[in-house]
Amino acid sequence: MSELMLMCLIAGRRAAIPTARMLSVIEIETVTPIPLAPDFIVGLTALRSQALTVVDCRIALGFPASETVEGSRAAVVEHDGHRYALVVDEAFDVAQALTAPAPVPGGFGAGWQHAAAGMVETEDGPALLVDVERLIQGPARAAAA
């Protein structure tokens, strides 16, 4: 397991996003809100003449919304032909995962459990590996029910 990860901070926790499907890391400039869209979708932003769907990772994981999205850093990923900008608290460096993702006894906690693929060890300590696909689906439906 030597997959490259973008190390970042989501809701104050260290998280890792696989770089395999990542296109770039950007700073969100302006966001066009989408009325009536699910709350974790903050809006649209443009990256080099392409519209990105901006996802607030905090809300997607079940935490309160990020204070300001505009000006935040975001990882641009592609899923199913659509491009998303995943807004994180902070984006650090790209690092190598030292271990395969593994579960943590007792789980990661409510929101994380939904969108975490497991825990990976990095040189700077453990981080949660984010499952991009589930993140994009938004908060677990079960939580709403």
Binding site: I34, A37, I41, A51, T53, I136
Partner: peptide
């Protein structure tokens, strides 16, 4: 017109995005 992300599509209000 570019297709829009499925989660937004589900609102049933939008057909796509454009710049």
């Amino acid at each position: 017109v570019k297709p829009i992300a499925p989660a937004v599509m589900r609102t049933g209000l939008y057909a796509g995005t454009t710049l």
